[in-house]
Design a protein around this nucleic acid. Structure first.
Lengths: 205, 205
DNA sequence: AGCAAAGTTAAACAAACGTTTAATTTAAAC
DNA sequence: GTTTAAATTAAACGTTTGTTTAACTTTGCT
């Protein structure tokens, strides 16, 4: 997938507007204006508004694949959890706008169901987590019987909750601006998720 | 707030359609048809589509207040966590449609920011969790230094993740239908969240 | 230079949107 | 039974929606 400058302008404008107004809330005229292009260019390059969303997803999905090579370098399973969560949160946090789009649109009716790219992404990431847990069990550090799906849901959900309730949480946490909020996510929230997963995997009962 | 039969029909229809198509995606004509009323009735009773959403929120919010009395009956802090999570998940799960509406709309621009009812609800629920954690620390069962906001985010986020990714997770978990998914949430997921919170609050490091 | 393809534009398209109007029916009060 | 207000309706309102058209400009190739 190769895009020229103008197409990327449109994709970036769409990302901004979808994230703040949702797919239905952002009109093609809004997007065209944000991207400084004529309205017709969107249909010319992408075919339709729906296909723009689809193309947008395919364009961004690769950014969210967990890099397995990086993880295999780390020694024990406990450290692997730390690295995994750190990379995962950093990746999602650096594409915060995108992640809000995903969260919103993936819930609505059948949109995105066609987008196999995302299903494959989720399955890939699930497999990475599963292998880490299994290696921890093999080492004797982790207890068995914890479903990777639930752990993945916990990690994703906790992060997403911070994305969805930024206004409320930023206020509650006494954080001044958006940058501070991003920093909080990359430090305190990351450590919290790391701690939670390790606590859970080593829990006796 | 008292509503007649027809108004409730509209509110219920709105709940269904907002949940599946989003606020922008559900037209007033859709809602009117779903509720078997004339289109004009929506504006007649609620003023506008925006006010319908606002009224809808205020109508449903009370259902999500944690009942503190029920919790004070339980003895130790560990059991309180179990009861809290159980009631919380059951409450959210029985209003699944609504919760999807909240999740979607609360993220988009400034909508809902005016709805103080929700902020108060969140603060109330946060206070309940805080008091449970503190009582556990007083008992010597829980370790100190865990922010209630993070624990609440984890609980909410994990549950919400199951709401947002039902199609994918239902497939991955091999669950046949919607009822089975609801049961999974009320049993396995509930136990997982309970275990996670207790593991975290008793974790050494 | 000449030509074909790609890029770009303003204008127009029909459809759908939320809302309002004006007319009519129903219900309640005296 | 008459009167007044509330409820209900079909139709129309003016916008906005996503998309297409047709004319025009730019680009790349021989």
């Amino acid at each position: 997938m190769e895009f020229n400058e103008k197409q990327i302008d449109i994709l970036l404008a769409a990302e901004r507007l979808f994230a703040t107004k949702g797919f239905d809330g952002a009109s093609v005229r809004d997007i065209a204006q944000e991207a400084n292009v004529n309205v017709a260019m969107i249909n010319y390059y992408f075919g339709s508004k729906d296909k723009l969303l689809e193309t947008f997803f395919e364009w961004r999905v690769p950014d969210f694949m967990i890099n397995v090579d990086e993880l295999s370098l780390v020694g024990n399973a406990l450290d692997k959890v730390d690295v995994l969560v750190d990379r995962y949160v950093k990746s999602m946090n650096s594409h915060r706008k995108l992640y809000r789009v995903i969260a919103i649109e993936s819930t609505l009716k059948q949109r995105m169901l066609t987008s196999d790219a995302f299903k494959k992404l989720k399955i890939h990431n699930l497999e990475v987590i599963t292998s880490i847990i299994n290696s921890g069990i093999a080492e004797g550090v982790f207890k068995a019987g914890n479903d990777p799906i639930l752990i993945h849901s916990m990690m994703m959900g906790t992060f997403m909750n911070f994305q969805m309730n930024q206004v409320f949480l930023q206020d509650q946490l006494g954080i001044a601006d958006d940058d501070g909020y991003g920093q909080y996510i990359e430090t305190t929230l990351t450590e919290f998720i790391q701690k939670t997963i390790k606590a859970l995997l080593t829990y006796e009962k």
